[in-house]
Design a protein around this nucleic acid. Structure first.
Lengths: 197, 197, 197, 197
DNA sequence: CATGAATGAGTATTCATTCAT
DNA sequence: AATGAATGAATACTCATTCAT
């Protein structure tokens, strides 16, 4: 998964303003005037850079995807055990959840919309697929190294991981301790039972 | 969790029409005129029954909650093992996912909106809490009976279950085989390793 | 040529207001707000009756056509000689030119637009064709009765009559004496030379 | 009638581009950006050359007038009979109608607009007056030479000629045979009846 | 001369809501 | 209960024009 062309300059400002507003008010509450105001430009200027609201949302999706891939690829994996890599992924999620929650909120809104908008889907789906694949890869490695259950189904387990994290975002954003419990549970769910006897 | 007053008559027709339209076009695409048209009445008449769009959405949330609780309570638990009960829950989800997917689509939209709308939250949150509690209860029972891991964290595991199902809805709605793999993975994740020795 | 369904009620008021405004400011200067204001209703109400500006212009065209046909059919022909009938047509044109000049102004604007808008063309072309046919019929009768030149080409002559009247509208609207000279010239152009021998 | 200062260079390119666009889309559809694009320059550059849209339209009018006068004066009259001169005028019209119809289309649009715009009127009216005068002069000569009717009213007849040609433009542009019939009818209308006795 | 970026003042259209009947 | 007509407040988008570079 190569990172798509990053959004830059005025376009990046616009995308960020839009992301903030979507996070605050949802898609329905998104108004071009408000975006322009937040960027500090005229509505007509906004339309000069982004011809239509549709296009704007597409740019938001691109910007999100670009951020996600960048974050993902910035994560070190060299010399780390699968469990450590997974924990890094959890830590990254935790940090983004608290530091830049708009990222997941917007992603959720875009996911809904992707159902009805092919252009959005084209940006969002690869991002989700990338996340699942990356996670599944970690699980495969862990299984092969004997730290994860031998009977694990990597793709299914990846969905389990991602689903749990996503759900945690909504239900444990302000209860980080509970978020950590969910992560711990995920690890226990994946790892070979050390004790048993 | 007591089921809320069920929506009936014209109001129920309106709620169902709204649910269909939300599922088809999302919240942003929801128009009172379209709802009225689908019910077969005039917009003014719609407003006679439901004073405002806010109220209408609240009714949709109620209707959804009512359906969810009803489905949940219709599920037999008598004389079933925790694994069997969990499998029943999976089967229910599977059926609704294929037979009445709008239920989950609308729930997702309402969940987003609950973030910003207290009245929606008041309907949606209890429903989600109920689901998690019910699932956690099953897990507790399983753990106590020795079929689920002794080190399981019931609340965290419940979130794992629900998160996995929810995520599957979006990514495996048209790949039921994969949905089944996710359910199987959930069971393996929870159960004591039968093999291991 | 049967008269099209006449525009009535609010729609007729709207069509008339639009005609006035087109006559005053041309098509480019036509604003929905101004039409609504002239009718004394809200812009939204205007859109309730006429969904789009395109539709509105189509209604203007219909209204014009309806008026034209009505005026034409109201003209008595019984027991009149071709020359008298033609003179009546001239008189009608003269009266409309002075009493309701907007009719011809709007027709000119619509004619231009018909070049690029099939829906307008569908209303305007039949009206123009009707006028030419009707005029040609009079000329045929006059020729057959020996009052018009035997070598007259009725269709070509009809275009000559209509073209002259139309051109007079623009160049002799405020010089009725000259308009009358043009009509007299038309008659001399058509009639057999009474003197000559 | 002296030809006005001809438009040259960039300004001429702009005027031509504007004429094409007016012919294609009418006045309402005329956008400065489109003109600039057709010339191959930026909108800002267009405004450097032509300060305002009003001015631009005035330049279009000038350019049209200039062309018309030039065409008119290029027509040989030396040693030709009035009938031959008139036929040349018809031939010229015929050629322009088929080769450069935008000229008449734009003229029609400008004529409409002249009603409400004094600056346009200042360019267009003299052009129309010139055409009528020139035609009337031919008719006077023909009458004096005895080839046209003695009772002809030259100004009125000139309007008849011009009106017929103009009307033919709209109704016979793609039926040249009919255009020729109209011209023939005009000649019969003007000439002394050769037969009659 | 030329341009990218910016903007004020529109402009048609939408939509939830109201009201007289 | 039901409806046709009406409306205020928005809303995305347009366009001629300006200006710093």
């Amino acid at each position: 998964m190569s990172a798509p062309k990053p959004i830059e300059g005025r376009l990046a400002e616009i995308a960020m303003a839009a992301r903030e507003l979507i996070a605050e008010r949802g898609f329905e509450g998104l108004r071009t005037r408000d975006i322009a105001a937040r960027v500090g430009i005229n509505v007509a200027t906004l339309h000069y850079h982004v011809p239509t609201k549709e296009a704007l949302i597409r740019i938001v999706a691109q910007s999100l995807r670009s951020d996600f891939i960048a974050q993902s690829q910035a994560r070190p994996r060299q010399g780390l055990s699968p469990v450590e890599v997974l924990k890094l992924e959890f830590a990254d999620f935790r940090e983004t959840m608290t530091e830049a929650p708009e990222r997941y909120i917007v992603m959720a809104e875009l996911s809904d919309r992707a159902e009805r908008d092919a252009a959005i889907a084209a940006e969002i789906r690869p991002m989700q697929a990338y996340w699942r694949r990356m996670t599944a890869d970690i699980i495969v490695e862990g299984r092969d190294k004997g730290v994860f259950r031998a009977d694990v189904d990597p793709e299914a387990a990846a969905m389990m991981v991602i689903g749990t994290l996503s759900m945690s975002f909504w239900h444990a954003r302000d209860d980080l301790e509970f978020f950590d419990r969910a992560c711990a549970e995920l690890l226990r769910a994946l790892m070979v039972r050390p004790s048993k006897d």
